[in-house]
């Protein structure tokens, strides 16, 4: 099952609609890392609200994706992790270190907007 990728302003949004097979997740990651350059996106949001399980494979894949996105000059945020899934991920011993998280899509966008504002201030101070 393919995950649609939407472009909203400077951000790419991938909303996972149901449990994903390993290959589909890998395909999504490939697509996002390609498109982030093509579309000159500043940020990527991966919405995992519909995932009822995040095991070591999917977590690892998402952590790798976040690293790639950062290397491509954008920021990635995972949104919508369910409370039970969060507990399972932590208890498995996975940390999602270096990955930003937010409650939901709205929060994810707010987070990226905040990032853009603060980095914009640093880069060219408009005074």
């Amino acid at each position: 099952m393919q995950v649609p990728i939407l472009k909203q302003g400077a951000y790419l949004i991938a909303s996972i609609q149901s449990a994903l097979e390993d290959d589909d997740l890998v395909r999504l990651c490939d697509a996002l890392s390609t498109q982030v350059g093509k579309s000159r996106a500043r940020g990527v949001i991966v919405d995992v609200t519909a995932l009822d399980v995040m095991d070591s494979f999917s977590t690892r894949t998402l952590v790798e994706l976040a690293t790639i996105i950062r290397l491509r000059g954008a920021e990635m945020v995972i949104v919508g992790i369910q409370p039970e899934v969060a507990v399972a991920v932590v208890r498995l011993g996975l940390k999602l270190e270096g990955v930003s998280t937010a409650l939901d899509l709205e929060e994810g966008i707010a987070y990226l907007d905040g990032k853009a504002r603060s980095s914009g201030k640093e880069k060219n101070d408009r005074g």
Binding site: P83, L96, L103, Y111
Partner: peptide, 12 residues
């Protein structure tokens, strides 16, 4: 400690 980590995953 795990609760703190899980809370972070929810963006808090």
């Amino acid at each position: 400690v795990q609760t703190v980590d899980a809370t972070r995953l929810l963006g808090a």
